[in-house]
Nucleic acid binder design. Structure first.
Lengths: 167, 167
DNA sequence: GGAAATCTACTCGGATACCGCGTGTCCGAGTTATGGTGG
DNA sequence: CCACCATAACTCGGACACGCGGTATCCGAGTAGATTTCC
């Protein structure tokens, strides 16, 4: 299975649509975002509460409310989104096998318990590299890249869809 | 959940015990390795068939048989073990959400399908960073680090346990 | 016409159902050394 | 003494049971703007 949940994917793509062609924030409701991308609404709603708790988006309640980026899109990294949605999870779950060696039966010595397990240290550092890489890409980067790839008509079509929706 | 399976952990720790204090390969049976580390035997057996298929260990069948590193421990990286056991799996499962935008209904245009999804590209490159990091650590490194941390008596105790076991 | 009640469209949070996959176990088959047995 | 056979200790491979967590759905509660109703 994949490490990052599908929620992460939904989250990132959603945030990408919450910034317009000029890079400014755009106010949208969860239902709009879900319908726009043909994504399950209830599920996406849960994801946005997490994004909100993490401070990546701001919510306004009541009718006409919705979500909005809490800070500029160039200050929201992919790592931020990942952490917000999936939480701090580890690529590797160390089971302290080093302590289970049959030689020290029932009572592993201190040297086998203190510090980080060597295997785990390697894994942790690898994960850190990955996260550093994720931290180098922002939502704005992704949005720009998407709009650059699409024909110019796409930007306005999205905007029109949203406007028609509000009415 | 963790990305790398517990099998990976078992595998790496097992390989570490298959090289002696001088760094030379040591012949061991799965049962020995499992008992030494108090790890489920049947499960570990499956892991070793994978290591074997990947060419990391060599097997000798029949009584007195067992496994042995197929190449020097300094030429087996953590990434090798991970790939052998968990196979080539991806941190991120792209669901092509970009194609699901409601604007192009039922028939996403070509530009939305060709090339890599932007989000996926970011994830893939991040994973690559992680794997590069894993490829920089070898089994020999890990073994050395373990023996360096343990008191000198530990090395001989392990050897004695193995020898007593053979008799 | 203004205040109050109703309606509608949101954000929240909990409970739950489904199901795939990791983890672990069991069993049978094939292989090779070892030890015992009979001629 | 030697050929033969049973046994034990391995590696393989498939099948399966169990449980957890990701995915998704449903529902109720709270909030706030828009609309209607009623005096």
């Amino acid at each position: 299975m994949a490490f990052y949940s599908s929620g992460v994917e939904y989250g990132i793509h959603s945030l990408m649509y919450m910034v317009d062609s000029k890079g400014d924030a755009r106010d949208m409701s969860v239902r709009e975002i879900a319908d726009l991308q043909s994504v399950p609404y209830d599920y996406l709603a849960k994801i946005f509460t997490r994004l909100s708790k993490a401070g990546l988006v701001r919510s306004t309640e009541g009718k006409g409310g919705g979500y909005q980026l809490a800070r500029p899109a160039e200050q929201i990294t992919v790592l931020d989104v990942v952490n917000a949605i999936d939480g701090a999870k580890s690529v590797f779950a160390c089971r302290e096998i080093r302590q289970r060696v049959v030689i020290f039966d029932e009572q592993p010595p201190k040297w086998a318990c203190e510090g980080l397990c060597g295997v785990r240290a390697v894994m942790d550092s690898a994960q850190q590299r990955m996260e550093e890489s994720l931290a180098q890409h922002t939502i704005l980067d992704l949005t720009r890249k998407m709009y650059r790839k699409a024909p110019p008509t796409f930007v306005v079509e999205v905007q029109e869809w949203i406007d028609a929706r509000k009415a």
